[in-house]
Design a protein around this nucleic acid. Structure first.
Lengths: 151, 151
DNA sequence: TCTGAAACATGCCAGGA
DNA sequence: TCCTGGCATGTTTCAGA
């Protein structure tokens, strides 16, 4: 399993994966090779999933974030899997979570502005099959948004 | 501004930032140096925000995701900024969005299991000042979760 | 599982078109 | 903004503890 050094390493990499193994080795009091092998192990085990760039959405005209709560008209297996396979295809939908409660799904949608969202709703989202109702909640400001999981 | 090559480059880096500039140069039909300079430009402009590792939450005992809708008792500037500065400190809270609608905030919280969430609610979240009410929605399954913004 | 050194690949900076 | 070339720096492998 993960020891304290692995956990520390994961926190460091989650904040900045461009650090060299040398920098990491200093922070962890290990040799360069030791760090290298620990990283490879974490990759092999699938704990490290991927290395990605995070971009500044507001600088590429994607600053408008909407949380859309959505209900299906029925909860048959067929309707669910049909809806899910279609929603995955939509690039505006960054996240789709099947959830408990009044609504079936919570979607996080990113577009340019309100007009683009209206267009998305009308031409894309509500044209999916089996959708009962939707309820849109608009983001006013982003207080916190991190990908770093504290282990 | 961003030309088509920049956009393609950003999509590639958002999916995998460990690709070498050589690999990218082939995919983009450019020289290694040209790719290198475009990346540096995107970093300078702040469009590329950071390079991070994404981990597999379920493999590190953080597979339990909760969306918590939260209301403040009042909306004075003081209460808002106090709440926001405190919620940022909580490592279990990956996201906190100030939103329109019935609730003031939507939080995305990641913990080990229901018991850990109960503990978090009782000892951390509800001890913050000025909180009116909360409504927790539990994730049943993750249909889609990407950081890639289609530009 | 760690260390240290050696081979190899890549990142990065000139200089010029 | 692009290319070619070369040096510096990084990654990766391997033997040995």
């Amino acid at each position: 399993m993960l020891d304290a050094t692995d956990k520390k390493l994961l926190v460091l990499l989650q904040s900045d994966c461009k650090q060299t193994t040398k920098e990491l080795s200093i922070k962890l009091n290990l040799s360069v090779t030791a760090v290298y092998e620990r990283i490879k192990k974490l990759e092999r085990e699938g704990i490290i999933d991927k290395y990605v760039v995070l971009i500044n959405r507001s600088k590429v005209e994607k600053g408008f974030v909407v949380f859309c709560h959505l209900k299906l008209i029925q909860h048959t297996k067929e309707f669910i899997s049909k809806f899910e396979s279609q929603v995955i295809q939509l690039p505006e939908v960054l996240e789709c979570h099947h959830v408990s409660g009044d609504y079936d799904y919570i979607l996080k949608i990113v577009v340019k502005d309100m007009e683009a969202y209206r267009e998305f709703l009308v031409t894309k989202l509500t044209t999916l099959e089996h959708i009962g109702s939707t309820h849109s909640t608009f983001m006013i400001s982003e207080v916190k948004n991190t990908t770093v999981v504290d282990i």
